[in-house]
Design a protein around this nucleic acid. Sequence first.
DNA 1: TGTACATCAGTGAACGCGCGTTCACTGATGTAC
DNA 2: TGTACATCAGTGAACGCGCGTTCACTGATGTAC
Lengths: 241, 241
Amino acid sequence: MVDAKPNRRERLRAEAAQEIKTIALKHMAENGTAAVSLRAIAREMGMTAGAIYSYYDTRDDLITALIADVYNSLVQALEEAIAGASGDPVEQVMAYGRAYRTWALANPQEFRLVYGDPAPDYQAPPCGPAADAEHRACTALTGVVVSAWPWAERLHGEGGYTWDDYSPEFVVMVRSAFADLHPAAIALAMRLWGRLHGLVSLEIYGHLRPQVQDPAKLFHEELVDLTRLLGLSVPVAALSD
Amino acid sequence: MVDAKPNRRERLRAEAAQEIKTIALKHMAENGTAAVSLRAIAREMGMTAGAIYSYYDTRDDLITALIADVYNSLVQALEEAIAGASGDPVEQVMAYGRAYRTWALANPQEFRLVYGDPAPDYQAPPCGPAADAEHRACTALTGVVVSAWPWAERLHGEGGYTWDDYSPEFVVMVRSAFADLHPAAIALAMRLWGRLHGLVSLEIYGHLRPQVQDPAKLFHEELVDLTRLLGLSVPVAALSD
DNA sequence: TGTACATCAGTGAACGCGCGTTCACTGATGTAC
DNA sequence: TGTACATCAGTGAACGCGCGTTCACTGATGTAC
């Protein structure tokens, strides 16, 4: 911020780093996660393979950056879905769920990158931006549970969960986001996540179609049942939605 | 069966074909699905890479055979779990679910092979033994729903499903297994499958641990809720199980 | 404004790697007479 | 039982491929005086 006119060099550098990721994602979308190769990217940019090393130290570094970007795009879609819904927890949980599936169907290879095997031989760094994004996604969903807790507590308050059921770092993070959080609320959020993830990942990996013509119908029933799990009564409007 | 003494050649051939698959699975378990390479297998067998082509026409053929084997092993585990449970639908659905997770945790790479990206550049054949195994798995779960249908019908009989919601071949197959099957029962089976799959695949791909110390606890709660979805009342014994 | 120097994105060639696949061949195993 | 032939699993060498990564280099862009 001290530097009023950012270097032309720096700007070009940032643009090129971005273009590398964009092309990598394009290749991934076209030919699967295995198709992310430094040489192929360089070829498409009209560059030499070695030039990539000005931007990323290693192929794995690029993939890590890719995962972070993709995860952030997913989390953003989820957060926007919640923000766009009314304060009603029923609306929120259904919006979150719909956004999860919609994003996955629109970005199947990205979904595989984040929730499947990232790429052959890729070793994920233990923590980093991807872990941050995962935390954000989890926090968003926990937020929905928190807003439904007045109803959900009746069903889940006695689940026998304590903070010891989670990793300490995770507890610190999520409790700082929600002051008077019940330990069982996190478990509930995880279960919600699992339900969304199950049908969506079966669909993305081709295990529902073509046996089932319209996975959306199954998914919607699960969404409705989610609200039951939260102890919420489902408005008639949502049932036909 | 006409040939009383099967060729020694044929026997050795079958053994070698089996050994190739065994070694492939071993490599997969050790280094991930990407580590299945004809050359590496041949090396371990003390053979030349070209020799593999006496047994499999192509690398993809081997992978297809692998997937079929693995899927059969999973389906067998599931079928045995159901067979080992009492006739009580509650026991059956919980046995099925537990077997699903247990198998996945014991065979994580195999799980990825079947439900994730099989291998880089692998193209699955449209139908074949893998599809058969998938049908068997689906049939087994549908069988559980059928046995619970007297209770489940009350909740799901009016779901608005018809046979047109499924592919014709699939309908023929599953109806031949269960004479008076309700279309909604299949949808219910798929939803059960989705719930099992969600938490299990999140766990296998490392998205639950270490944030959640004991995914089994979450999973068990889902199992209990599965019985609710089937309209069954949950015995007290199962709750503490 | 002009000159001398530093920076650093990108080059081009090379390294070594493992891969799937093909092919003419050898030699042991099985078969037919 | 012995001989002539057919089968066919496995050899070994080669093909062409794309990959990640390194390195001495060039030449345009930026900086300091």
